[in-house]
Design a protein around this nucleic acid. Structure first.
Lengths: 119, 119
DNA sequence: CAGTATCCGACATGATACTG
DNA sequence: CAGTATCATGTCGGATACTG
């Protein structure tokens, strides 16, 4: 399984995988983004509803990360022209497509967190 | 699919998933860690071999991130008591267990990066 | 209700020079 | 070869106060 003659081919696949990884990390990393995505998996939520659901998030960061997720096309922001204002956030199809990946990440974390009692 | 009576149960699963995610991200996030892991998937490598394989990494960061991966138990550092010094890095079983997760992350990234031509 | 605006400190990373 | 040491910089996120 060590590298053979195909060093170049191997390097290229490593580079390709890194590009994908880098893009993925740029989209989902940020202290509160995973929490936002997990919460929205169950359906739309209003701004304050999210704020209450995500313990410890500040208004500043919640808005900032929602905007980044919107920019990346994972979240849709729906503004109802009412008084008092109402805004709902909802995953797009692209947002929902992260579910399997996010679950495999959280599963890995949960499985291996426990093996670290020895430290 | 909106939340029913089981708000608490839902919240708990969200929290659990977040813990796993947080742990996973703490282990793999860092500008060069995915690159290191992908490179080591094909077998052990020496320090300078890694350095050349990972374009743009500085000595400082390569060492720092290798040490963090070692701390987390994903990478084993093997020192040969020779002159000139020789050090090899190798994935542990735990390190290899990230492969599927990392691939699903890079796959998602590669698939959805292309859909963003519209920006 | 759903945000903005400002300020600030902590940390991640980079550049460069040096060493056993 | 495989690192350390030191300094510089930029981004992320927290705290707080204010607003349409």
């Amino acid at each position: 399984m060590r590298k053979q003659e195909s060093t170049n081919a191997l390097n290229e696949s490593v580079i390709l995988r890194n590009c994908g990884m880098a893009y993925t990390l740029s989209v989902i990393s940020g202290r509160w983004k995973p929490a936002i995505l997990f919460n929205l998996m169950d359906g739309k939520m209003r701004y304050n509803e999210l704020r209450r659901a995500i313990d410890g998030v500040s208004e500043r960061m919640l808005v900032a990360q929602l905007r980044e997720l919107e920019e990346a096309g994972l979240v849709k922001r729906i503004v109802y022209p009412e008084v008092p204002p109402r805004v709902e956030y909802e995953l797009t199809a692209l947002g929902r497509s992260t579910e399997d990946m996010l679950n495999s990440m959280s599963d890995w974390g949960n499985m291996h967190r426990e093996k670290k009692r020895g430290r």
